[in-house]
Design a protein around this nucleic acid. Sequence first.
DNA 1: GCCAACGTTGGC
DNA 2: GCCAACGTTGGC
Length: 139
Amino acid sequence: MAKTQHWLIKSEPSVYAYAQLEHDGSTRWDGVRNFEARNNLRAMREGDLCLYYHSNEGKAVVGVARVARAAYQDPTSEEDWSCVDVAPLKAFTEPVTLDAIRARKGFANLEMLRRNRLSVTHVTAAEFKTFLAMGKTEL
DNA sequence: GCCAACGTTGGC
DNA sequence: GCCAACGTTGGC
């Protein structure tokens, strides 16, 4: 059994909010058109955990999703892009705002801060644990 | 293979 | 709605 990896995925809540994911039960995470984000999608394995970040509005991590299906050809493109399926796992008791993330010591190397325009970033196990604590949430 | 132009993302 | 950052594209 491969070790679970952790990721952070971004979505504008006006486009697809976490509540929508909970409503739908699962969704295809498609439309990614950035090579680095694509590589991250391809590194995902079923069962990996994703922090779900609301960009633009909210600007906070609001929950955890689980990779329900590893990377496959993105059906919304004829070209070589990938998508995964994700399912909701647990909403955070308290959203973890961007301000709080920035203020947090130990998050200096957080990829989503360093590469703020990348929509799919890697999160270390330690960072993930910290996020859960900040969100007052246990899985 | 360089670099300017362009498009997209995301914070403010 | 604006603008900065930055990845991508295309001309040379």
